[in-house]
């Protein structure tokens, strides 16, 4: 049998990337109106992504989810009615849409900002309740056994020895 000539592994990878890039460019050109709306509408998310220094990117995720919710009606309107650059331009220049998209992102920001405070409050209440419960238990021990129960075992023994000596 005759062996077919094969391409080297590096050349294969480059080819794959080129083919993928061409496909993406084609798709972008095809969905350019949607991309335009998404890029402009998702600016708060992009900003959040870059300003959030945490690895987990909770801020970007939080703002992004809400922001996407604001962009989604605009994008859906285009997809179901007129998916053209004109329509895209109209939508991105519409103040109401801006309000919708950025307002949703603001809600995301708000959620991101307020939640830690709420959680902190809840945590503090929880800890205080536990401390209070434990102090109540300690008080019960004192009521049952007297102030001596607060002494350490060693100091109790020392007291006992002292009283025995007396």
């Amino acid at each position: 049998m005759t062996d077919f000539p094969t391409m080297p592994r590096g050349a294969q990878s480059v080819a794959t990337k080129v083919i993928g890039g061409v496909i993406v460019v084609c798709v972008c050109v095809w969905v350019l109106p949607s991309v335009l709306v998404l890029v402009i509408g998702m600016v708060p998310t992009i900003v959040a992504f870059f300003t959030d220094r945490r690895r987990e990117k909770y801020a970007a995720f939080c703002v992004g989810a809400m922001n996407l919710l604001g962009v989604l009606p605009v994008a859906l309107g285009m997809w179901t009615q007129d998916h053209s650059m004109d329509s895209a331009m109209r939508n991105v220049t519409n103040v109401f849409n801006w309000f919708l998209m950025y307002g949703a992102a603001a809600i995301g920001w708000g959620l991101y900002s307020v939640t830690p405070a709420i959680v902190a409050f809840v945590l503090r209440v929880q800890i205080e309740r536990r401390i209070s419960k434990m102090q109540g238990y300690q008080q019960e021990l004192i009521d049952e056994w007297g102030e001596g129960v607060t002494d350490s075992a060693k100091s109790a023994e020392e007291k006992q020895a002292a009283s025995a000596e007396r």
Partner: peptide
């Protein structure tokens, strides 16, 4: 723990906000 509550709460709050945001969005 109470002294460290703000720190814990921030981390946990961000997670909670992200989950809540994601859930509401979905």
């Amino acid at each position: 723990d109470a002294g460290n509550a703000d720190h814990h709460a921030k981390e946990m709050g961000e997670q909670v906000a992200a989950i809540a945001s994601g859930s509401i969005g979905f």
